[in-house]
């Protein structure tokens, strides 16, 4: 059954395109930083005795420019694949590290959101009664609070913020709709006849949950995770863009924020704003393709082999 799903998935063009995009960017985030001598903020680190000097290049160089960095005692030839920003920082390094951080936010934030949503939704749906009432009340309250506003308030209260903290904040605010969806799924599965029959076959509650109910929502959970993954990345970029991202480090959102802040587009420095924007757009498109591809895999009625 599993291998059959995989076979169908690999025949699905949307799925394949989506996976290709995601794998490409994941590899890029993984390997990309290895081929640049710059640090994540785009400075060139030079070791001098026990000090670390951060050197810059010429500002506003277009992509594929060559430049020379002068360090005490030597001259270093560097290539800026994506040019430099108005402070002479390498943009390629910023983008690859930024992508890496965005993916981390997606994994952790999306993971937390999915996990919390799954747990709460499943508990509410399976236990029913008061458990359900209370959990759903909390969920609904979370739903009506505007997430962005909440994120802004939380983020503003923390003086130092890292990527991990940002992911956790995003994860803890993004779960409500997942919880609702999982609850609905569980509720309908719980009342499906085969669950009743398993009960009549003398199975314990735990066995029924693990053996009968959970396997039937795994495909759904998988798709929810992909959506949450994309959602967390976008939420992080939104936060970064309005200046509430990590206080240390870089992200695609921060690059964009800087680009806007220093009028990159108006001044014609397109290489500052376009690459990060394009990567975000492409990556989210990839996730979207995987998701609709999977939907066709899991739901035989949508299949057109």
């Amino acid at each position: 059954m599993k291998s059959e799903k995989l076979r169908i998935a690999l025949k699905n063009r949307k799925f394949k395109v989506g996976v290709a995009i995601i794998v490409f960017f994941a590899l890029f985030a993984l390997i990309g930083p290895l081929v640049t001598p710059f640090d994540q903020l785009g400075y060139y680190p030079v070791k001098l005795h026990k000090m670390l000097l951060l050197k810059r290049s010429t500002p506003n160089l277009p992509p594929m420019s060559h430049d020379v960095i002068y360090a005490p005692g030597r001259e270093i030839n560097v290539t800026h694949y994506l040019g430099t920003d108005s402070f002479g920082r390498d943009l390629y390094a910023q983008v690859v590290y930024g992508l890496r951080n965005s993916l981390i936010v997606g994994l952790i934030g999306g993971g937390i959101a999915t996990f919390v949503g799954l747990t709460i939704g499943f508990l509410a749906g399976y236990r029913g009664g008061w458990t359900d009432e209370i959990l759903m009340m909390i969920t609904n309250i979370m739903l009506v609070i505007p997430t962005m506003a909440l994120l802004i308030i939380i983020a503003a209260y923390m003086s130092t913020r890292g990527v991990i903290i940002e992911s956790i904040i995003i994860g803890l605010t993004a779960w409500p709709w997942t919880a609702r969806a999982i609850r609905a799924q569980t509720l309908s599965l719980k009342n499906r006849e085969f669950v009743h029959l398993a009960k009549l076959a003398g199975l314990s509650d735990l066995k029924i949950i693990i053996g009968e109910i959970l396997p039937n929502i795994t495909s759904y959970v998988f798709m929810v995770f992909i959506l949450q993954f994309g959602g967390a990345i976008l939420a992080a970029i939104g936060l970064d863009f309005i200046g509430l991202g990590p206080t240390r480090g870089i992200s695609l959102g921060i690059i964009l924020q800087n680009a806007v802040l220093w009028n990159a587009i108006n001044l014609g420095y397109w290489w500052w704003a376009i690459p990060p924007g394009l990567i975000i757009a492409l990556f989210i498109t990839g996730l979207y393709f995987v998701n609709i591809g999977l939907e066709e895999v899991f739901n035989p009625r949508l299949r057109r082999e």
Binding site: R192, E193, F194, H196, L197, A198, L200, E212, P215, N216
Partner: peptide, 12 residues
């Protein structure tokens, strides 16, 4: 024991 209405929903 029991048999229910919807045969398709009665099997996982």
């Amino acid at each position: 024991q029991a048999v229910f209405q919807d045969p398709f929903a009665s099997f996982n």
